[in-house]
Each structure stands twice: as structure tokens, then as C-alpha cells.
């Protein structure tokens, strides 16, 4: 058995989980909700094994390193963290339907990685040969994943807010009755960001510590660094907006969606459109 096979199983499992969640949404059958969650957890377990196996395989090849060193490995890890944070929110707050809006993010990541990317294990270039890589990547991606979950919840909020304001005649029936109340969605959004914000803060700090250690500058306004700071500003604004009158609800949901868009740009856009020290796979030392 190879990690690559297990990653394919993972992708397939997330697909099934998503389909079951959609069926849950349509049928309102409680068992389906629980099933969807458990399939997602099963996928998480398989993916955990797969990541560990890939780690081991890299050692067998003589280029041993944690599987977080290029775009493929990072997006696989991102998917894993998204389901991990989802599992936490799911177990803690038990609003199953959130899965229908979060699992697709993880599935999208896995499908893109498995179908569209070079999956080979590559040796580490000198710049990445450091334990800081591990601390930095883990904290950043856990933070990003929490923002992904918050974004999914905010999309639910916005859909529900729009539907409820347009047809107030059927508040009890319809698809919307499956969604948690707006007040709860708003609160869940805040809670997910309360997980993400400290993690992103740690991610930026470990990145700065690593840069200082490796290059002698903790901050050099490199595009990736700057974008991570932009993301941080947006979520800091979110936190302060909440304690200002009139910024809860819809506006907070939009802010969370914008924050996640900035997060994705920080993660992918910077590498695709801008240049800098962080471009994966460049042979810069």
C-alpha cells in the first residue's frame, strides 16, 4: 500500500461525505447528518495514515522530511487541517449541517492535488531544511483551516439571511429550517475565528522567528509576509467590529468571507501572481 493510494481513498471518502451531507440537507434525515460526519472522520483517519506513510516513504527514499515542503504536500495538509477543525466544531457544537459547507473545501483541495499536481516526493532545498518549517506550516495551516470553516459558516449565514428576508412567510419549513438560527451561525463564525486568529498569530511569529534565524531579518516585507499581515489585519478588524455597534450579523459574515478570500490569496495567489522568497520549489537558497 502506498500513500498515493490512500490519498485517492481520502479524496473519494470526502466526496461521499459531501454527497451524504447534501442528501441530509435535502431530506432532513438526522441519521444522514451523523453518517456524513462519520464518513468525514473516516476520511480524516485515512488521510492521517497517508500523511504519516508519505513521511516514512520520503525517509525510505533517503530524502526524509515532513510532507509539507511543496504545493502538493501543503494543499493535502490544508485539506487535513480543514477536516480536523471541522471535527472539533462538529463534536463541540453538534450543528451537523455545517459539514455541507465545509467538507467541499477539503474535497476541492484534495481533488485538485490528486488530479492536477505532480505528486512526487522531492528532496528539500537548503532553505527549507529546518525544524521551523514544521512549526510554521502547522500553525499557519491550522489557522487557515479555521478561517475556511468560518467562511463556510458565514456563507450559510448569508444564504439564510437572504432567504429569510425575501420570503418571511415560511420561516419554519424549507431548506432553511435545517440551518442553525442566525444568532447561532453568527456565534459559530466568531468561535471559529477565535481558533484561527491565535493560530495565524503563532504562524506569523514562527515565520518571523525562522526568517530571523535563517536570514537575519524577522521581517522583510516579502509579499507572502505582507499578505499574512493583511489577513491578520482583516481578522483583527473582525474582532473589533464585533464590539462596535452595528457590525454583527451580515457585515461580520461578509468580513469573514473577505478574510478567507485574502487567506487564499496569501496561500495561492502570492505564489501564482507575485514573486518572493516563499515561492515553493524555487531553487533559491
Amino acid at each position: 500500500m502506498t500513500s498515493s493510494m490512500l490519498f485517492n481513498v481520502t479524496t473519494f471518502t470526502y466526496l461521499i461525505s459531501m454527497i451524504v451531507f447534501f442528501a441530509f440537507l435535502a431530506s432532513k434525515n438526522k441519521t444522514l447528518g451523523i453518517t456524513g460526519s462519520f464518513i468525514a472522520y473516516a476520511g480524516l483517519a485515512v488521510q492521517t495514515v497517508a500523511i504519516a506513510l508519505r513521511w516514512k516513504e520520503s525517509y525510505d527514499m533517503g530524502v526524509g522530511h515532513a510532507p509539507m515542503s511543496n504545493l502538493y504536500e501543503s494543499i493535502v495538509f490544508f485539506s487535513w487541517t480543514i477536516i480536523l477543525i471541522f471535527a472539533y466544531i462538529d463534536i463541540r457544537y453538534k450543528y451537523r449541517i455545517v459539514g455541507a459547507f465545509v467538507v467541499p473545501f477539503a474535497l476541492l483541495g484534495m481533488a485538485w492535488a490528486q488530479l492536477g499536481m505532480n505528486t512526487g516526493i522531492e528532496p528539500l532545498v537548503p532553505a527549507l531544511q529546518s525544524n521551523w518549517l514544521l512549526y510554521h506550516v502547522i500553525t499557519c495551516f491550522l489557522g487557515y483551516a479555521a478561517f475556511a470553516v468560518a467562511c463556510g459558516i458565514s456563507i450559510m449565514y448569508l444564504i439564510k439571511a437572504v432567504v429569510e428576508s425575501t420570503d418571511s412567510s415560511t420561516p419554519a419549513g424549507g431548506l432553511m429550517s435545517m440551518f442553525p438560527p442566525l444568532r447561532v451561525l453568527d456565534d459559530l463564525n466568531y468561535r471559529a475565528i477565535m481558533i484561527g486568529f491565535p493560530l495565524l498569530t503563532l504562524g506569523i511569529i514562527t515565520g518571523a522567528a525562522w526568517a530571523n534565524y535563517a536570514w537575519g531579518t524577522y521581517w522583510s516585507w516579502d509579499p507572502k509576509e505582507t499578505w499574512s499581515l493583511i489577513v491578520w489585519f482583516v481578522y483583527a478588524a473582525f474582532l473589533h467590529a464585533r464590539i462596535t455597534k452595528g457590525w454583527v450579523g451580515k457585515r461580520a459574515a461578509w468580513l469573514s468571507v473577505i478574510g478567507f478570500a485574502a487567506t487564499i490569496f496569501c496561500y495561492l495567489g502570492v505564489n501564482l501572481f507575485l514573486s518572493g522568497l516563499h515561492s515553493y520549489g524555487s531553487s533559491k537558497m
Binding site: 509579499p223 489585519f233 478588524a237 473589533h240 462596535t244
Partner: peptide
């Protein structure tokens, strides 16, 4: 505070 946080976020984009 909100104005400053948004301003810092938006203007920072220029340098990237």
C-alpha cells in the same frame, strides 16, 4: 481602529 486596520490592510497591498 477599524478605519486604521482596513487602511493598513488595503495600502499594504501596493507594496506586494
Amino acid at each position: 481602529t477599524l478605519f486604521l486596520l482596513f487602511s493598513l490592510a488595503l495600502t499594504s497591498i501596493i507594496g506586494t
